[in-house]
């Protein structure tokens, strides 16, 4: 055990400040201190992606990052992605296209997909498959996840066009 550090995080628009050991993983801080249990833990080696969140505008795997490394950062987790009355387009699309089964990988999938669609607003199927390769799913075989993300992309693009 080592000395605790004072950590500041802005998560889903809310400021948090707490003392934590530098070795504490970001995912544990989110889940256990802030009760944001939508980010899951699946492998502790950065392979499965069920812990994916957005940190300072980039997708990160919160199980392979110390909370100390995130000090001062701005984060979005699945809990910041839409409300029960106003779901995010991806949340709607995953339901519509059966893009989930047990739901364990889903928050990470949606967080990564949201970032992917910012990086590539109009992706090909190949780009979606490559861009999502850091997130594993054991239930769906990905076919409907890809379909969900493609559908969300096209919906976001139509909304954008309509707004212009």
């Amino acid at each position: 055990m080592s000395k605790k550090m004072q950590i500041k995080l802005k998560v889903n628009g809310e400021d948090h400040e707490f003392a934590a050991e530098p070795r504490e993983l970001l995912v544990h801080a989110l889940r256990e201190r802030l009760n944001l249990t939508g980010s899951h833990v699946g492998c502790e080696t950065g392979h499965c992606g069920v812990c994916t969140v957005t940190l300072n505008g980039k997708s990160v795997k919160s199980c392979t990052m110390f909370v100390a490394q995130a000090d001062g950062a701005e984060l979005t987790t699945i809990e910041g992605m839409g409300t029960p009355d106003n779901l995010h387009v991806l949340q709607e699309a995953f339901r519509e296209h059966h893009g989930l089964q047990c739901g364990y990988c889903t928050p990470g999938m949606i967080m990564r997909a949201a970032k992917l669609l910012e990086e590539i607003p109009n992706p090909t199927e190949e780009e979606v498959r490559f861009g999502m390769a850091g997130n594993l799913c054991r239930c769906t075989g990905y076919q409907n996840i890809v379909k969900s993300i493609m559908a969300a992309a096209s919906e976001l693009n139509s909304a954008k066009e309509a707004a212009q």
Partner: peptide
């Protein structure tokens, strides 16, 4: 029929064992 489970899962509101406190 669309799945009734999906609303909570897509919002990160599943309740898995490690979520129990």
């Amino acid at each position: 029929r669309k799945r009734v489970e999906d609303l909570r899962f897509t919002q990160g509101k599943g309740n898995y064992v490690d979520d129990i406190k």
